[in-house]
Design a protein around this nucleic acid. Sequence first.
DNA 1: GCCCAGGAGATGT
DNA 2: ACATCTCATGGG
Length: 275
Amino acid sequence: MLLANAQVDLHLTLVDSAQCFGWIERGGWFGQVLDGKPVWLARTEDGILCEGCDAAYLRDYLDLNRDYRALASEYDHLPAAKRAIEMYPGLRVLNQPVWDTLVMFILSANNNVSRIRRLCMQLSEHFGVQYDTPRGTLYSLPSPERLVQCDEASLRALGVGYRASYLIGSARAVIDGFPIYDLAGMDYDSAHARLLALPGVGDKVADCILLFGCRQTSAFPVDVWVEKLLRSWFRLQSANRNALRKDARRMFGDHAGLLQQFLYHAARTGGMTFE
DNA sequence: GCCCAGGAGATGT
DNA sequence: ACATCTCATGGG
C-alpha cells in the first residue's frame, strides 16, 4: 500500500524524535508492532510504502490529517515557536497505542534516549509477542496480562532497574480497571490527575502519555531540555517544572504539546541554540 | 571517579 | 506547598 503525498520524515519522526522507542530500522525500512499487527514502512519518491496496516490507520498514527503549516501560523506572535515548527517540516506528533505509550514512558524516567530504546527492545524480545514477517521478526511490547506475570527480578535482569515495580504495578492497575482508553475523551486536567495514580507516572510522564497516546494536544511535557528552553527562549521564570507546565499551556494554547515536540527537538539536537 | 539522562516517590519542613 | 534524597543503569 502506498500513502501518497505524505509529508513525513520517517527517521526523524520514528527514531530521532524520542516520542517512541520501539521502531527498528533495517535497510531503509522501519518496523514495529502496532495494535497487534507487524508494520513495515519505507519512504519512496511518491510517498510512504506500508506493509501490515491500512492507509486510514497509518494516516492517523502519523498525524497526517493535521495541517502543520496552519499549526506554525498559530504562533506568528512567538517567533521562536514558529521557527522551530518550520525548521522540521517532516516531524509529526504521533498518535500511538496508549498502553505501549504508558510502558515506554515509564521506562523513560531519568533515563537517556538510547537506553530507553534498548530497554524497550529487551522488554519486547523477552516478554512480547513474536511476529515473523518476510522482512524480519518483530516483537510487540508485553501486554498488561503478560507483564503482571513477570516478577520484579526478571525485569531487573533486563536492565530496567527500579522501574521494574512501576511496570508491574501499572499493569496490575490496568487489569484491575484503570481506564486508559477513556483518557482521550476526558478534559486535560481530569486525565492528567487520573494518570498520577499509576506507579511510575508523575507530572511529566503523564503529559507524554496524554500527548503521544491520547491525542491530548495541549499536554506539555517538561523535561530538562524543555525547562531550559522555556527559560531561555521564552523568558519564563516559573519556580519549578510543574509551574512551567501550567504556564506553558497557558501561553501556547490548545496545541501546546504539538509545539513542544518541535521545541524539544530543536533544543536537544542543537537546531536552535541557547545564549 | 564525576555528571547526566524525556523523573518519580518518599520523607521532612 | 516546597526542598531534598534516593532510586538503577550506561554513556560521556
